[in-house]
Write a protein that binds this DNA or RNA. Structure first.
Lengths: 181, 181
DNA sequence: ACCTGAACACCGTTCAAGT
DNA sequence: ACCTGAACACCGTTCAAGT
């Protein structure tokens, strides 16, 4: 009993905390997530969470980061650069649309999440492969990302409608910035 | 003294409350706006504000609505439908970019603000004038609005870059949806 | 009927006291 | 050194008691 303990509850960890936080947000909405409610869900003292996250803001950022962490995993494989890029942005829209609006804004915060940085790097790589200069790729990416994030916030959304607009924007940007300029 | 009072502070009103709320948000950020802080700023009991706004959510919506209420006032005059539309969206982007991210999401909430509805109606009217069918105008508007709102959330923004992307998107949508389909 | 202000049920976070 | 839990400084909002 003293040598080999079998704890009734697993040891606390960032992973377990994020699981619980995500569960609360899914079931009770973003306003339901408080440090105290979270501690209760984990059967832990309120202050214990602060061992793993500096404050609530850091926790929320981690929740959003994890919810968007696997964007682009599906579609790094073959196909044209344009196809990959559209697939990347479709995944981005879907992942962001699944987040509550209050949390979604954290994805494009000034101090971007690791997930957001990875998505941006993947997108820029695709655009460079498509013949855009570094500067043109940057401008093009911001336009595509703006469209995607904005669409994620619209109600009654239609996946096909998103894709049609995305194609129009991408083709137009390619015609304007891809070859000449 | 008893017949004609000269009150040291003006009577409370929605207008005065929104002035104070906007001032607090400008000076102390969105997190600084609390019902209690607002009451203090107005030199009033905390509960007095509830005579004019049902709850804090309604107050915040009213703040955002007022901050976006004069979008489109400048540009309803002459020019092509495309020029008017671009001007409308430029104003929309600027007004939204001036709002804190936490408040910005309320502009496109499911129960849209009066200001958002007016902007949408103006945009749709421009698109109909440009030859879009009602259905095509709806899809086109959602794409343009998504792009605009998304851009409003991006850091280190360039007005010209916004405008270039907007023109690309609008021209592309016109080519795709305006004439045929 | 209206307005007051005390009170309720929460927050995030600090910090002194214990182990 | 680490963990606890009491305490601080707030919240939004309800509601009974006063006028």
């Amino acid at each position: 009993m003293s040598a080999a303990e079998t704890p009734t509850t697993e040891r606390l960890s960032r992973e377990r905390i994020l699981d619980a936080a995500t569960r609360i947000v899914d079931e009770e909405g973003p306003k339901g997530l408080s440090m105290r409610r979270l501690a209760q869900e984990l059967d832990v003292w309120p202050m214990s969470v602060y061992r793993y996250f500096q404050d609530k803001a850091e926790l929320v950022d981690a929740v959003v980061d994890r919810a968007t962490a696997d964007i682009g995993e599906q579609s790094t494989a073959g196909g044209s650069w344009k196809g990959r890029l559209r697939s990347l942005l479709r995944e981005t829209r879907a992942a962001l649309a699944a987040q509550p609006a209050e949390f979604r804004v954290r994805f494009t915060a000034a101090d971007s999440s690791p997930a957001a940085l990875r998505v941006t790097e993947a997108g820029l790589a695709d655009l460079r492969e498509g013949g855009f200069s570094q500067e043109a790729a940057g401008a093009c990416w911001r336009a595509l990302l703006a469209y995607t994030i904005g669409f994620a916030g619209l109600a009654e959304v239609d996946e096909d409608e998103f894709d049609r607009g995305l194609r129009v924007l991408l083709d137009g940007l390619e015609a304007e910035l891809g070859a000449g300029d």
